[in-house]
Structures are given as C-alpha cells and as structure tokens.
Design a binder for these strands. Structure first.
Length: 428
RNA sequence: GGAGGGAUGGCCGAGUGGACGAAGGCGACGGUCUUGAAAACCGUUGUGGCCGAAAGGUCACCGGGGGUUCGAAUCCCUCUCCCUCCGCCA
C-alpha cells in the first residue's frame, strides 16, 4: 500500500509509475475520495467538539428544565453527527479498498519496459549445457523422473488431479535433502532464524502480504472458515511482526522457512502442463528480511547472493534477471529473478525471485520500528526471496546431472544428506 | 462439540453512564542529591487522523465491528482471541 499523503502530494509521480507498469489503478477515484473525506472530517469534527463541550456542561447542570433544553438542542447536533459519520465511514471504506489496488512504485533503477521481454539479464555464471556437452540428447525431467521411478505423475493425478505428482524413493529423498541442506546453510552461514509456520492463515494476513484483494483467483481457501492456504511463506513471514513497533537495534531481522505452497494457477491454465514446473502444491525455502529503510537495497543484493550461492554450490549454471517495470510484481519496488538452466527442458527456470517491497507490505501489515526512545515510529522495509523453490531446483538438478545410461549423479553437497548416495540409478 | 470466565496504556492492575486518555504500582527516560552508583525525591512517559508554515488546536482510539444515549472503558448486539472444566483426538 502506498501512503495516502504521498499520493495526494505526488499524484503525477504515481500516475507515471502506473504507466511504467503498464497497469491501471483507481487513482482519480482515490484523490476524489480523499478530498471528500477531509471535507467531511472538518465538518463532523467541529460538531463533535461542540457536542463534547455541551455534554460536559449538561453533566454539571442541576436545573432540570435547563438540562432538558440543552439535551434537546444537542439531540439535533448528534443526529447530524450520526449522518455525517455514516458518510465518512462509507467514503473511508471505499478509499481503503481502492488503495489496496494500487501497486508499489518501481525503484528508479528498475529498467522500464512493457513486459517480460524487456527484463534484463544482469549476470550469468556457468555455461548452459547443450547436447554436445552431454554427448547425448538430455531428457526432460518428465521423461527422466518416471524412468528412474522417482516421479510418479499418474498416481499424483489419481490422488489429486492434474498438476499433482508424487515423489518417490530417491526422488523424495533428494527433495528432502535439498530442503535440509538449504535450511542449514541459511541458518548456520547466512544468519537467518529458522521458523515453522502456519500454512493456512486468516484473510487479513493475505491483505497484509498484498495477495488480496487483487489475486483472490489464485488462492485456495476454506469456504466455511476463514482459512487461506499460503501460496508462499512470504505471507505468514510478512505478518510475523504485524502490528508491532520494533526497536532499531533489533533490525535487521532475517527469517527462513520451509513450507508447502499452494497455488490455483487458474490464470496459467494450459501453460507448462508437463512435468513439475508449474503445480498446485510445491515446497519452497523462503528467506525474509525486516530492515532499516536506508539499508534495504544493500539487503536486496545480499539476499540475491544468498540465493545464487545455492545454485553455485549445486553446480547449476544460473543467471540473474532484473525484472522490468512492466513485469514487476504488484508489491515489489525491485525484483531480481534467479534462473537455473534446465538442459532437458531446454529453458531457464525461475528458481528464485528476490524482491524489495520497501514499505509496501509494512504499511499494510502495520510493521514499524523506532529509531530511538521517543522517536516517531517509521515503517520498516521488507524483502523476500526464495532460497530456493524446490521442484524447479529438482528439475535443474535431474536434467543437469543426468548421464547417458539414464542415471543421475547426486551433487556432491547433497550426498551427506542422502546417506552418501552418489548416483540415482534406474530400477533394474 | 458442551458449560463457564476473561480481554483496559511497555507490563501489572483499578474503574459499571458525565470529574476518564483513563487511579495506583512496576518498568523506562530526564533531573536533584552523590567522588561514582544505589536509595530517596521531583518530573516525563501511547498511537493515528484532520486543520496549521509552525506554535498549537481538534477528533478518534480501553480486543475488532455495530448499536443505545445529550454524553459510553462502563449498557446492548455481534465477531475474534485467551483461560478453566467436560467430551473427543495425532
């Protein structure tokens, strides 16, 4: 959410941001409602002041006749206040709702462009492996997985329908190894605090993390009770310090969580239907930071470094992509995607997305800090980044480490987490 | 699932229609005293909105939302959360 006062003072700047994003928001309506609200407040607050003064007098008045007269007089004022209050409430409700539909303002460093075509590859490490490097034609994971009997698509579909899958044997174990390994690195080397979180949250948390109201289509929720399934650990992590005022010396706060992620993928119907690239349920290790505003862009760089370091250690060629204004997520001021090469599918896979949302979520979830005792509370900056998304990392590993006989070499760093297994072989 | 009891400022806790943005205590901060510290004493100690260049003024907030009333922390309705007991359960 943007600061209403900021919108009021810089409407052109906001309009320009929307244009760069190639999107729309009810900006004019907001300005109109804001003006109306302030006019109403002026009027109703003057009346309330009058009422407060009069009520105190009535309390002191002993004479019953005079008392009655004053009460009658105030009854009219009170009615007028009630009517105005209704209007204020109406205007404020619409204003708040409208504000929730305004996206964040892109940072000035973000490349301007209409869509993902304009994203910029800022760096790359490792060369994407080709058929020549392999000496054979590398298979996509949707062929490799069943061959190795480690991904069972048919039974996944039997259990839950399309876009579900079952990991089995060494596939499940590799998945678990990745989670443990990633968490261990973040916790022991990168200073993140491990958390275990609710995977369903209240509606308010969805609004706080800016999933609602705009992305309701993509979220699973319980129809009877107020439970919303998380599409990312970013949602509970954002709200961890909801309605709190932190002290500056607590910052920065780093958290990491492994959670399942549930996504309806309604809007991506028909896209990426093969394999486990785009599914309704996947696991992810997520990093999250609460930081001082003036440090948030350095923090974004180190967040990206924490993510790419995992690719590097796994021996996966990757590239860092700076997302342009037209492709930027709703809440984000600046985002880097990290893409790992999947030689079998022949594409770069988004295994991580690291964003600085500045005060966007902090404002929605009311997360503040105080620089020193007695200082005015300010909103913190928050950042989130995958470190990393599991199925896509698994895809990249399987496709990168496959051998001519169909076996897959386990990356060295994961072997201690796999009971020393070095190669995943097809069943005999 | 059934039956009860609760939610007040950073914390504890008083307050059942006007004197209450809220007693008292604790904590924190500033000061006096002291070689220094402690103790003692004095003072300060919430958040947000609106108007204003500022000083300041004003409105709102006692778990959330509605209502009654000239006036609500206090009365009514409703929701959420917490606690106790019973039942059930991994």
């Amino acid at each position: 959410m943007l600061d209403l006062a900021f919108i009021r003072d810089h409407p052109d700047l906001v309009r320009e941001a929307l244009r760069k994003r190639n999107t729309d928001a009810p900006l004019d309506r907001i300005l109109e409602l804001d003006e109306r609200r302030r006019a109403l407040l002026k009027e109703v607050e003057a009346l309330k002041h009058q009422r407060n003064v009069a009520s105190k007098q009535i309390g002191r008045t002993k004479d019953p006749a005079e008392r009655e007269a004053r009460i009658a007089e105030m009854r009219a004022v009170s009615d007028r206040i009630a009517a105005l209050d209704d209007q204020v409430r109406e205007v404020e409700t619409e204003l708040k709702e409208a504000l929730l539909w305004v996206p964040n303002i892109p940072h000035e460093s973000v490349p301007v462009g209409p869509d993902e075509e304009a994203n910029v590859v800022v760096r790359q490490e490792g060369e994407p492996k080709t058929a020549d490097d392999f000496g054979f034609r590398p298979l996509p994971h949707w062929d490799l997985g069943p061959m190795l009997d480690i991904i069972d698509f048919e039974r996944g579909v039997k259990l839950a329908g399309s876009r579900f899958y079952v990991l089995k044997g060494m596939g499940a174990r590799l998945h678990r190894a990745l989670i443990q390994w990633m968490l261990d690195i973040h916790v022991t080397e990168n200073g993140y605090t491990e958390t275990y979180l609710p995977h369903m949250v209240r509606r308010e948390m969805m609004v706080g993390a800016a999933q609602l109201p705009k992305f309701e289509d993509n979220i699973y929720h319980d129809a009877e009770e107020d439970y919303w399934f998380i599409g990312t650990a970013e949602i509970p992590l954002t709200n961890l310090h909801r309605d709190e005022i932190l002290s500056a010396d607590q910052l920065p706060l780093y958290y990491v969580a492994h959670t399942p992620c549930f996504r309806r993928e309604k809007m991506s119907a028909g896209r990426d239907v093969r394999g486990i690239k785009r599914v309704h349920q996947f696991d992810k290790v997520e990093m999250y930071k609460f930081v001082l505003p003036e440090t948030s862009y350095e923090e974004l760089e180190s967040l990206v470094e924490n993510a790419v370091d995992l690719c590097r250690r796994l021996g996966l060629p990757y590239r860092v992509v700076e997302i342009c204004t037209g492709d930027l997520g709703f809440a984000s001021a600046k985002t880097y995607d990290i893409e790992a090469w999947a030689p079998g599918s022949g594409e770069w896979l988004e295994v991580s997305s690291c964003s600085n949302v500045e005060t966007f979520q902090a404002r929605r979830a009311n997360i503040r800090f105080r620089r020193e005792k007695g200082a005015k509370p300010e909103y913190v900056h928050t950042l989130n980044g995958s470190g990393l998304a599991l199925p896509r990392t698994l895809i990249a590993i399987l496709e990168t480490y496959q051998q001519a006989d169909g076996s897959v070499v386990v990356p060295e760093v994961l072997r201690p987490y796999m009971g020393g297994v070095e190669v995943i072989r097809p069943p005999v």
